[in-house]
């Protein structure tokens, strides 16, 4: 009983400490989300040519975010692969990426990259970009106060031969190709 009380006390103490320390910024949060998406998406078998190939996350249009992302993923692995975040400036750079993050991109820039990515096994993630999923993007962060944190277009994922876990789908607003037509 006494041990139980001590454990309880220590636990409460540690909770109080962590609450004070954890203050996340929007970028940090979104970096973590990008990293987490990887956990729920199965890539086609031939995605990596060797076991030592890193997991690549490309960032388009927001170098500030890239800095935050690199800090967040530092030392982390996905399925035993190191994660590397790179800046994307031209379409060829996307070739080896598993996730491409669109942030603060222009409409034409977005469409161009999405056009390029169509059918390729790369997860395109938009940072609250209007009609991102309707335009062929796979995941798009929604506005800060919305019920769902992000939206997913499973048809796009299917076309990209990516298998998105139902668990992840359950957290997203689903955007279908039907909506694309409207």
């Amino acid at each position: 009983m006494r041990t139980y009380t001590i454990i309880l006390f220590l636990t409460l103490y540690s909770i109080a400490n962590t609450l004070k320390a954890q203050q996340f910024t929007e970028y940090e949060l979104k970096s973590a989300y990008l990293f987490n998406f990887a956990k729920f998406i199965d890539f086609p078998e031939n995605t990596f040519s060797s076991a030592r190939d890193p997991f690549l996350i490309g960032v388009i249009g927001n170098e500030a975010f890239l800095d935050v992302l690199q800090t967040v993923i530092k030392g982390k692995t996905i399925n035993g692969r190191n994660i590397i975040a790179i800046n994307i400036t031209q379409t060829e750079d996307i070739q080896n990426c598993q996730i491409v993050y669109f942030s603060k991109t222009t409409r034409s820039q977005t469409l161009m990259f999405l056009e390029f990515l169509n059918g390729k096994p790369v997860v395109s993630v938009g940072d609250n970009i209007e009609d991102f999923c309707q335009s062929g993007g796979i995941i798009n962060f929604t506005q800060q106060n919305s019920v769902k944190r992000f939206e997913i277009n499973p048809n796009a994922a299917q076309r990209a031969k990516l298998n998105i876990s139902s668990k992840l789908l359950a957290l997203a607003r689903i955007v279908t190709d039907v909506e694309v037509k409207f």
């Binding site: 989300y33 019920v147 769902k148 957290l171």
Partner: peptide
């Protein structure tokens, strides 16, 4: 198992 995603994406509703 089913709580991993909601936790990772901070979705208490889910």
């Amino acid at each position: 198992n089913n709580s991993i995603a909601p936790l990772l994406f901070n979705d208490p509703n889910e």
